[in-house]
Amino acid sequence: MALRANTRTTVACLLVGLGALLVVAAIMVPFYTVGRLAKTPLDLEITTIATNAPNTPSEVMDAKSLTTGDGPVKIDTNAHLISQRYLTVEDPSGADSMTVQAGQTLRRIDVQGDTGLLTATIDRVTIDRKTGFPIDADDNGTIALQVNTKGQSVAETVRHTGLQYRFPIGTEKTSYPFFDINVRKSYDMKFVEETQINDLKVYHFRQEVPVTDLSKVANSATNKVAVDASKWGVEGDGLVTMNRFYGNTRDVWIEPQTGTIVKGQEQLNVFYARDAAKPEVTALKATLVMDDKTVNSQISTAKHFMDELSLYGRIIPIICGVLGLILLVAGVLLGMTHRPAVARDPLR
């Protein structure tokens, strides 16, 4: 009888101890595990593709016609465009920050070979893994627009100041500064609405990048061009110098829990002029939107990250908490039902 009592007491203590451990785990897991999960993964490798939006203008200057031939510059309409970006994580990267590199090209797919390449850039920025914002350093990023005689990209140190490739974990319905690599400045990305894409809740944001003189941003031969007036198709004789201007209306759709950019769209307006308020020659006018394959891939990435956050932030804590309480109650009840045996008087 004494052995049974001791066994019951031991089991009760084990149940109470295990139950208490599970309850503590239910409380601590969200703080420690989710805190580590709620950061941008270091194994990012993302390819995104954007093409012409249906039923929108798509005008592109034929750059060769600006310097060759007898007639004025030629503007091709209904150009078929594709913008491709390949994003990877590079060194230095660690527990709290990571360096993101994005190589991006914009090309025409209705012409052959390299003649279809319109722009090519390599952007690097070191960001906070949780907020998505660049780290506070003057050398937190570079932008490469040109190549040297060996065909190697020439990077220029550029201080990045806003979000670009991800939004904060737990994106809110507010405005965020968003960095534009063309003007090398940040403008507010304003919350527009909450909506859904393929049954996934997303936040829609919009940014207006004002028309900017690119010759004052980067020293590039294409940003200030002097050719004969007849080539520009304007009145007058002799050389006429025009600057390249750029404006953009950018829309992004964000999965708020993870900060994943599910969908993106840009309304590009690039032109040559002597006055920003008076566009004279179109260089590029098009609306580019991420294709369905890219959107579906981004949704899959967001849902995977959401499932991990849900597993460690809610499901495991609930299971641990419920099992812990059951074991605690069972242990207490088992201990309370134990009564010490009363010795009998042999003379009775």
Rank of each mutant, 00 (worst) to 15 (best):
K201C: 00
V322D: 05
A50C: 03
D213F: 05
D96R: 12
T88C: 08
G116S: 07
V270N: 07
R8K: 13
G69Q: 12
P317V: 07
K39L: 06
Y176A: 07
M306R: 06
Y246I: 04
R159G: 03
L200W: 08
M290R: 07
A276W: 03
R124Q: 13
V34F: 02
A277Y: 02
A226I: 01
N248D: 15
V202Y: 12
K190Y: 02
I181W: 05
A218H: 10
T33E: 12
F133H: 02
H80L: 11
S83D: 07
A302Y: 03
L21P: 01
E59M: 13
R314S: 12
V147C: 00
L22E: 09
M61Y: 01
N296H: 05
S220V: 06
T40K: 11
K216D: 11
V154T: 12
V227Y: 04
R108E: 05
T294S: 13
L3K: 09
D345S: 00
M306F: 00
G236F: 11
D292I: 12
A341V: 09
T51S: 12
P346F: 08
V60R: 09
S300I: 02
T149R: 10
I261W: 06
I143W: 02
E194A: 08
Q84R: 15
Y176M: 06
L333M: 13
F133T: 07
A53N: 08
D213E: 10
D123W: 09
G103K: 06
E45Y: 06
N78K: 15
G103Y: 06
R244Q: 03
G19S: 07
I46Q: 15
Q112D: 13
G331E: 09
V89A: 12
F178Y: 14
A229P: 07
Y165N: 01
N269M: 08
Q196Y: 11
L81H: 03
I197E: 08
V234A: 02
A226T: 15
L268V: 15
